[in-house]
Design a protein around this nucleic acid. Structure first.
Length: 511
RNA sequence: GGGGGCGUAGCUCAGCGGCAGAGCAGGAGCCUUUUAAGCUCUUGGCCGGGGGUUCGAAUCCCUCCGCCCUCACCA
């Protein structure tokens, strides 16, 4: 059974006991609220006369409910602010209006962060603030543990000075409920996140795509280069993997006659955790028949512009001090040109892992000794190119051996028709012209097994069912995947993925 | 996993070899238009855990745990 751990909790528990001793229900089942706080303020302002001293043309009687965010007992005339999801309003509790007992309860037994319900008429104070003048006050829920107090003061020059607050990232992530309760701007991030996902759905639904849901628990994982989480089904006596991508299931649906398909959902990758990586993250993938990666680029540009306008009302996005312009066609650079320009290495002149690693070392880099050629190229992209890609940029034409699901470029055995796109120095998404030749796909799977023999953790099992589906006939198509969390980071100007996840992955801590 | 930083009251922080501190929150009192309300008084600490150095450790050293930054792997 919970026991108070500090003075604040001890005092609050005593207040709770005192309230109950006086026959007051501290946790009533419901509220008789008549107005949200925003609605109450709007109703008052609609009838308010020009002279604040004379109040409104008619009395606006409301019952509002919310959490006590400031509490200023002041003799026989006491003040508080209460907040609900729509806003914040001041309440004025005068002893001669509510009676001696209710006023004493308000002053002595109420705490910051309690939930209360206030019935009264709306008015405006001499200082100009819309206020509920209470006729009665009722406790809706007692708060026993104190939330961090945030106080603000407007300085003479108009800036807002903050006192205290709840800023320790670890505590904010571990106790997100307290973070949300106290930090308004955190709530706004998650509203923007919801708008982002809604805008993505609006875009694809309006573009003739069908939204689907495919298995998260999969007997064979695939579609990306990542280590999976494993689990087990007891009755089926089956090892299962949490999906690392949707790709192979969504493309089966193209075989089934669904020409344009998308999914928004969670992927799970058993990899490192950092500023832009969480073990579970939200991805959107789409596949569309009868287009190639050029068609996918056109959709990508249109989609990002649509989403930014829907979420922010503009296609000029400020991210970490840079203004990112989503209104224009994006820069398109081949991976080879980008790396040659930024690192001085033309990887085409070093067509095997050994020679490429040697030249990288000569340039003062530290290539991972076990890497394949394609992975070395990818590491050059990450270290030398990506940080410079602030404005939206398509990097195109990727090495074959790190792209086992992408179609070859005609007349270029080294490259496939693939692009990744970058905004704000972040890798946002990945797309390609999808292989639809079942025999080519099978050969590519087998080649991957050879390439990664030294790196067995990333060796993917061959998905025979996927190959069978493709043998029935798959239309030519382009596919696309994008990290939704990173898109939300971009749109909310947030440099850390944990700030856009309600409950990010953290190590357990002994309490 | 490597490197760097941080961990002190409910919250935000100072103190960095010599009595454990401040503001806010909390408690008592005064106060019927306040809004960081104010004034007086006041409670509250395994200074992240463990070990060591020292006459003496929040402070120096070692170690463990957690978070942040960074590099590596990845989206």
């Amino acid at each position: 059974m919970w026991q108070p751990e500090n003075n604040v909790e001890k005092d609050r528990k005593e207040k709770l006991d005192r309230l109950r001793a006086n026959g007051i229900e501290a946790y009533p089942h419901t509220s008789s609220r008549t107005h949200s706080i925003a609605d109450a303020i709007a109703a008052f302002e609609a009838v308010e006369g020009p002279d604040p001293e004379h109040g409104a043309s008619e009395a606006v009687l409301v019952t509002v409910a919310g959490r006590v965010m400031s509490h200023r007992p002041q003799g026989k005339s006491s003040w508080a602010h209460i907040e609900d999801a729509t806003g914040r309003v001041q309440v004025w509790v005068k002893q001669d209006a509510v009676g001696e007992d209710a006023h004493r309860m308000f002053d002595d037994d109420l705490d910051l962060f309690d939930f209360i319900e206030v019935t009264g008429t709306m008015m405006r104070t001499r200082r100009g603030e819309v206020t509920v003048l209470a006729e009665s006050v009722r406790l809706l829920a007692k708060s026993l543990s104190p939330l961090p107090v945030v106080k603000e003061r407007k300085l003479d020059d108009g800036t807002v000075e903050r006192y205290g607050g709840f800023t320790d990232p670890e505590e904010r992530y571990r106790q997100r409920y307290a973070d949300l309760a106290v930090n308004l701007e955190v709530r706004e991030i998650f509203r923007a996140r919801a708008r982002t996902i809604r805008a993505l759905r609006d875009f694809f639904d309006g573009d003739g795509f069908l939204e689907v849901e495919t298995p998260i628990l999969q007997p064979i994982y695939g579609g990306a280069a990542a280590r999976p989480f494993t689990t087990h089904h007891n009755q089926l006596k089956q090892e299962l993997y949490l999906r690392i991508s949707f790709e192979l299931y969504l493309k089966r649906l193209l075989v089934g006659g669904i020409d344009a398909v998308y999914e928004i959902g969670r992927d799970f990758r058993n990899e490192g955790v950092d500023r832009t990586h969480n073990p579970e993250f939200t991805q959107i993938e789409f596949y569309k028949a009868y287009i190639d990666y050029h068609g996918v680029m056109a959709i990508s540009e249109r989609m990002l512009k649509f989403v930014a306008n829907a979420v922010l009302g503009t296609d000029q996005v400020v991210f970490q001090g840079s203004t990112i312009d989503l209104s224009k066609p994006w820069e398109r650079v081949t991976l080879r040109d980008a790396i040659r320009e930024m690192s001085g290495i033309d990887y085409a002149q070093y067509p095997d892992a050994e020679s490429l690693a040697r030249v990288m070392q000569e340039k003062g880099k530290r290539p991972d000794p076990g890497s394949t050629w394609g992975k070395l190229v990818d590491s050059l992209l990450g270290t030398d190119v990506q940080p410079h890609l602030i404005q939206p940029t398509f990097i195109t034409e990727y090495p074959r051996d790190i792209s086992p699901l992408a179609k070859m470029k005609p007349d270029d055995p080294m490259h496939v028709e693939r692009f990744e796109f970058f905004i704000g120095g972040m890798e946002m998404g990945n797309a390609f012209t999808e292989i639809n030749d079942p025999l080519d796909q099978e050969q590519r799977f087998l080649d991957m097994g050879r390439l990664y023999a030294a790196d067995s953790e990333e060796t993917h099992p061959v998905d025979d069912d996927y190959l069978r589906a493709m043998r029935y006939g798959m239309p030519p198509n382009g596919g696309f995947g994008m990290g939704v969390d990173r898109l939300v980071m971009l749109l909310t100007d947030t440099p850390n993925i944990r700030e856009v996840l309600l409950f990010p992955a953290l190590r357990p801590r002994d309490e």
